[in-house]
């Protein structure tokens, strides 16, 4: 009988733990703003979010980084994110089309740039070889983001086709689930070279570990980065604050520092 009472207590405990969650205090100022963001924003957005928190300690932002396509799908299935920041505006546009967001809440915030990145100790003369470096037999594996759902992966494939070397390089592909994982593949040496976002290449974690060559902007379709506030959000005010921060002068400066260019700029960045 003692066993039985133990079990009953255990069950009660289980239900209590499962049900009551301190975070369930709904819609209150306590819950953080939940943002789904493309992985290329990792370092830039982290900095912005920290600044916002420093100014207002109640403004907590929880970011889930991932591949833009996957995050869009999750939001469509009801994932409780308040905002989507995507490496390609067409994913937020798709959300609007499926009724999950209002078109008035769409906003572009940057244009992504693409680089070929190799580790510091590689003997290849990347500056001169440029894209042909990928054809070198010493480069046995080339990491790109999965073109099925990651905008940077699709851009990488487009660029390779533009240079007419796609079929030669394709057998060497190693696919990252999102652009951050792709960068991590090259940084760790698992792949010998990678096509990654400039925003990640200039980030502190990667900056001193390798060399890169920027792929000209005309080699791939424009990576217009855009975001949208999800219609079902209960934190509209905070979401608008974040949007304002991203598109403000200061926000644009931070983004520029991390290698993004602004949507209205047309220059082809020098490397």
């Amino acid at each position: 009988m003692k066993f039985f009472t133990c079990m009953l207590l255990g069950l009660a405990l289980a239900l209590a733990l499962a049900g009551c969650s301190p975070k369930k205090r709904d819609a209150g100022a306590q819950t953080p703003l939940r943002v789904a963001a493309a992985s290329d924003l990792k370092f830039a957005l982290d900095e912005l979010v920290a600044e916002l928190r420093a100014k207002d300690s109640a403004f907590v932002v929880d970011v889930t980084y991932g591949s833009s396509g996957n995050l869009k799908t999750q939001i469509e299935q009801g994932a409780p994110f308040d905002m989507l920041l995507s490496a390609d505006l067409r994913f937020p546009q798709a959300l609007v089309k499926s009724g999950k967001a209002a078109s008035a809440d769409l906003f572009p915030y940057a244009v992504g740039r693409l680089v070929i990145w190799i580790k510091k100790d590689s003997p290849l003369d990347l500056a001169n070889l440029q894209h042909k470096a990928l054809l070198d037999p010493a480069i046995r594996k080339v990491a790109i983001a999965n073109p099925d759902h990651a905008p940077y992966g699709q851009a990488a494939v487009a660029a390779l086709r533009h240079f007419d070397i796609h079929d030669a390089v394709a057998p060497k592909f190693v696919l990252g689930e999102n652009i951050a994982q792709t960068a991590q593949f090259v940084e760790s040496g698992a792949a010998h070279a990678g096509i990654i976002a400039l925003s990640l290449a200039v980030a502190p974690a990667m900056r001193d570990k390798g060399r890169f060559w920027e792929i000209p902007l005309n080699a791939f379709p424009r990576l217009l980065q855009g975001g949208v506030i999800v219609g079902a959000t209960k934190k509209r005010e905070r979401a608008e604050q974040l949007r304002a921060a991203l598109t403000s002068r200061h926000g644009q400066e931070v983004l520029r520092r991390f290698g993004f260019i602004m949507p209205d700029e047309k220059r082809d960045a020098a490397h």
């Binding site: 079990m7 255990g10 069950l11 405990l13 289980a14 733990l17 499962a18």
Partner: peptide
């Protein structure tokens, strides 16, 4: 830990 505890208890019952 919370998840593991709840799961284990539910599985017991």
């Amino acid at each position: 830990i919370r998840l593991a505890l709840v799961t284990a208890l539910i599985l017991l019952v």
